[in-house]
């Protein structure tokens, strides 16, 4: 088997009295869509935040491209090519889509102006337009504020931002929860296309038909531990639900 792109080994994370992760493992390979599923409180969000630098595990290791890494900030994870589409989208609603796409990575004007921190707004707008177009995302106007976009359009901006910057791993936390049927299909399509570029796409979802439709592999969390791993071929909805609820007892390593 190839080296995993991103791997969590026995992560432990405690919030006060709550042990969110109790030695959780997780593996993502390049060029696959892996679904991370689990019931509420299984530790999915905590695992994602530990793997994207938003929070740090109390114990355990994170391995990236065969080396152990310490993700001490989101910026660090981003430098490694790891991006997250948050459930709440994490967009600045008063800024336009281009500004959101380049938020924290603004392009500067060349020369003295750039030295003074002057933004190259035209180039950012052009590149943003290209990035949106590449994903087949249509926006009424790159210059309008995100707050005046529809829910689906906002979702598109958040997805496009992560896709534009992720070179290795992209986490998508319930990316289709607020979307209609057509938009949902489009996001799934984007996930497949990103996977085909060799990027690991981690889908966090409660929607089992969606998981079955798009994922290549499934990893199941329960009570802060990985309890099952499935290849999508031959797996049934009952298997997934059984592993999530504990009805089906599978050990960590099973595939």
């Amino acid at each position: 088997m190839t080296t995993p792109l991103l791997e969590a080994r026995a992560l432990v994370k405690t919030y006060g009295h709550v042990q969110a992760l109790r030695g959780a493992n997780f593996t993502a390979y390049a060029g696959e869509v892996v679904a991370l599923i689990g019931d509420n409180g299984a530790g999915k969000s905590t695992l994602v935040s530990c793997l994207s630098g938003t929070s740090q595990a109390d114990a355990g290791e994170v391995w990236f491209e065969g080396r152990q890494v310490r993700l001490d900030s989101p910026a660090h994870a981003q430098r490694l090519g790891i991006e997250v589409v948050y459930q709440d989208l994490a967009l600045a609603a008063d800024l336009d889509p281009a500004a959101n796409l380049f938020l924290g990575r603004e392009l500067m004007r060349p020369g003295v102006l750039g030295w003074f921190g002057v933004l190259d707004r035209r180039r950012m707008r052009e590149e943003a337009t290209a990035a949106f177009g590449e994903l087949g995302i249509e926006l009424p106007d790159a210059g309008t504020r995100v707050s005046s976009l529809s829910g689906g359009q906002r979702q598109s901006v958040a997805v496009a931002r992560s896709v534009a910057w992720a070179s290795k791993v992209i986490f998508m936390d319930e990316p289709t929860a607020a979307l209609g049927v057509v938009q949902r299909e489009r996001v799934l399509d984007v996930m497949r296309r990103v996977r085909d570029r060799g990027i690991a796409v981690v889908l966090i979802s409660h929607n089992m038909p969606e998981v079955l439709a798009v994922a290549d592999r499934v990893e199941v969390l329960r009570l802060g531990q990985r309890v099952a791993r499935f290849d999508i071929a031959g797996v049934s909805l009952d298997d997934l639900v059984g592993a999530m609820t504990g009805a089906l007892d599978v050990t960590d390593g099973a595939a």
């Binding site: 989101p74 948050y86 709440d88 994490a90 600045a92 609603a93 938020l103 921190g117």
Partner: peptide, 20 residues
């Protein structure tokens, strides 16, 4: 960029934090 970060933080500080 200083101005843009000011708008971004006023708009959604958590989003600003998450992009580094």
């Amino acid at each position: 960029r200083f101005g843009r970060y000011t708008y971004a933080i006023g708009s959604n500080p958590e989003a600003a934090r998450r992009v580094g």
